[in-house]
Design a protein around this nucleic acid. Structure first.
Lengths: 139, 139
DNA sequence: TTGTTAATGCGAATAATTCGCAAATGTCAA
DNA sequence: TTGACATTTGCGAATTATTCGCATTAACAA
């Protein structure tokens, strides 16, 4: 009953990490979890406010940071825009930025992840995470 | 004789792009071209100053931006640190960040680039550029 | 050589993010 | 249940990378 759309029980994850389950965190996580785009802090702040006007921008920032460390959230740094966030996807994926429109497209599949694992292994490393960003234009 | 270590004649590239060849740009490009790490603006500014004290930080920023648009320089945005730069490599490569030490390792080879091209094509796009960052730890 | 226009240095401005602090609140042990 | 206490919060101020405005300088085409 605490499970998000992605199947994660965030309350459990927070507690397991020794973190507290606060209403602000719950609200922010709900909003991020329901977003189908990749919101930045401003987006998150505004949408969360509509649901719970006790949250401040600072808390959105702090929550993103906390959730990222807990492995629940992925931070996307693209171009020079403010950071965007997404719930850590169960099926990993990468991103393609349409350079004309600025649209962000998700690249499905495991092919990229597999290659990354192989490449890292060849260099004597084990992957913690990887992220590919392709900038492209429609053909 | 104007060719950099990577074989590019930057004066020609600048002129072809309708840009002027200024001493400040020359100094900055020399420094960046000789760097074997991936300097940020502060690094570049300090090293360039030792060679040419007419450059200002603003010009380093502007030069990086200009060179990036001209396709001579690649900007690396990793984590939350200030942007780093490298001369556009003739043999494309990606990067691996050692999460323990913060070291930045270059991943050689064309395998990644090839996969990216294929993946983009499947989505109906042609690649402008791509960049993969792997965060990993030594095994 | 000269006129045009891009490029520069300087310092101020901006924008995203972080911080300091006092008040509030989740959690755990009794 | 209650209390104690460390975490978390809101607020606004501080920080920091980067950009801008503007007057001056200098590249380069004619």
């Amino acid at each position: 009953m605490n499970a998000l759309k992605n199947g994660l029980d965030y309350k459990q994850v927070l507690r397991d990490a020794g973190l507290r389950v606060t209403p602000q965190r719950a609200s922010i996580i709900t909003i991020l979890s329901e977003a189908d785009d990749h919101p930045n802090v401003e987006d998150l702040y505004e949408k969360t406010r509509a649901l719970d006007d006790t949250v401040s921008v600072a808390t959105v920032y702090r929550t993103m940071s906390v959730l990222e460390n807990a492995g629940l959230v992925r931070k996307l740094m693209l171009d020079d825009a403010p950071a965007r966030y997404e719930m850590m996807p169960q099926t990993d994926h990468d991103h393609l930025v349409d350079v004309e429109s600025g649209d962000l497209v998700e690249i499905p599949g495991t092919e990229i992840a597999e290659l990354m694992g192989r490449v890292a292994a060849e260099l004597g490393y084990e992957i913690v995470s990887h992220h590919t960003v392709i900038r492209a234009r429609k053909t």
